[in-house]
Simulated scan of single mutants.
Amino acid sequence: MSTPRRTLLRALPAAVLVGTAASVTVGCTRASERLDAESNTVPEVDLSGIERQDDLAAMVPAPIRERGELINGAALNYAPGEFVGSDGEAVGYDMDVLAAIGQVLGLSTRTESAVFAQIIPSIGSKYDVGISSFTINAERLENVSMVSYFQAGIAYAVRTGNPYDIDPADLCGKRVALQVGTYQEELSLERSDQCRDAGRPGYDMLAYVSNSDAATNVAGGKGDILMADSPVTAYAVARSRGTLEQIGDIEESALNGIVVPKDQPEFAEALRGAVQYLIDSGHLREIFAAWGNENGMLERAEVDPQP
């Protein structure tokens, strides 16, 4: 079974975890996270045509209906899925998906910034849902339900022109830039061990708090290659002002899912129905196309699909 993408490593020292947590919760306002402030290209997606679906709205748990607001937990350091905009608000395609789902269910929406590893344990208490680029996997499905809405894999980027002649299939001894605590970090550790087992140097891993920092350092020559989820890599390349290019094939394509409490199957079905409505109406495609990630579209939303 593959290791969960975007999950903190179990072996991280406590000091590193504390530093990472602080950077995620406080560092969201840093210039490196406000990618839209520099590029001014955060799209405005028109959600005005989305209609409330009364049958789905009736399936939402009573406490949420009475509150009138759907509360989401997200780690806001993962552009283009979720990050902090120039006005200090949460932006990204996941935030647009959340708003669209809210309209289908007749709810306003609010996203609270969270440490990624603390979102799932807080679903059903602090947060109603978790929309934060979660990969659906068997380990997570043991504890929560997940509604599929997007598909992503692993993709790579290098400095334009690939001056170091990097091959993603052979990164032994190369400086691999990535976000700390993600699936890419654990996968790189595994592949690095394979390099050493073959008598070659392991990966020289450069782990940063955010993917934007990782991309910046590859563009600046401190790293040889960026390794990230495919929408993240595509976003970094698009906003690199020509300094980065994507190379190689997308690997290990997997479903992303909305996290919902396991003991609320009717709520999960309401979310599935809302996503399916957005698929069938074309609104979901408009959202992902606006963010340059239309190729991650699904034709069918499911509750707890097999990973």
Results as ranks from 00 to 15, higher is better:
residue 143 N to Q: 13
residue 144 V to R: 09
residue 144 V to E: 01
residue 146 M to F: 05
residue 146 M to Q: 13
residue 147 V to N: 02
residue 147 V to D: 01
residue 147 V to I: 15
residue 148 S to M: 09
residue 148 S to K: 06
residue 148 S to T: 08
residue 149 Y to Q: 05
residue 153 G to R: 08
residue 154 I to S: 11
residue 154 I to G: 09
residue 154 I to C: 08
residue 154 I to W: 13
residue 157 A to R: 02
residue 157 A to I: 04
residue 157 A to E: 02
residue 158 V to E: 01
residue 159 R to W: 04
residue 159 R to F: 08
residue 160 T to N: 13
residue 160 T to I: 14
residue 161 G to F: 14
residue 162 N to A: 05
residue 162 N to K: 10
residue 162 N to L: 12
residue 163 P to G: 10
residue 164 Y to T: 15
residue 165 D to R: 15
residue 166 I to Q: 10
residue 166 I to L: 05
residue 166 I to Y: 07
residue 167 D to S: 11
residue 168 P to I: 06
residue 169 A to L: 15
residue 170 D to M: 11
residue 170 D to C: 07
residue 171 L to Y: 12
residue 171 L to K: 06
residue 173 G to H: 11
residue 174 K to P: 00
residue 174 K to W: 06
residue 175 R to G: 06
residue 175 R to C: 08
residue 176 V to E: 04
residue 176 V to R: 12
residue 177 A to F: 09
residue 177 A to I: 03
residue 178 L to H: 12
residue 178 L to C: 01
residue 178 L to Q: 14
residue 178 L to M: 13
residue 179 Q to G: 02
residue 179 Q to R: 13
residue 180 V to I: 15
residue 181 G to Q: 00
residue 181 G to T: 03
residue 182 T to R: 03
residue 182 T to Y: 07
residue 182 T to G: 04
residue 183 Y to G: 14
residue 183 Y to R: 09
residue 184 Q to M: 11
residue 185 E to R: 06
residue 185 E to T: 04
residue 185 E to A: 08
residue 186 E to F: 12
residue 186 E to N: 11
residue 186 E to I: 11
residue 187 L to T: 02
residue 187 L to D: 13
residue 187 L to H: 04
residue 188 S to K: 00
residue 188 S to H: 04
residue 189 L to Q: 13
residue 189 L to R: 14
residue 190 E to K: 09
residue 191 R to V: 04
residue 192 S to Q: 01
residue 192 S to E: 02
residue 192 S to D: 04
residue 193 D to V: 08
residue 193 D to A: 14
residue 194 Q to C: 00
residue 195 C to V: 10
residue 195 C to D: 08
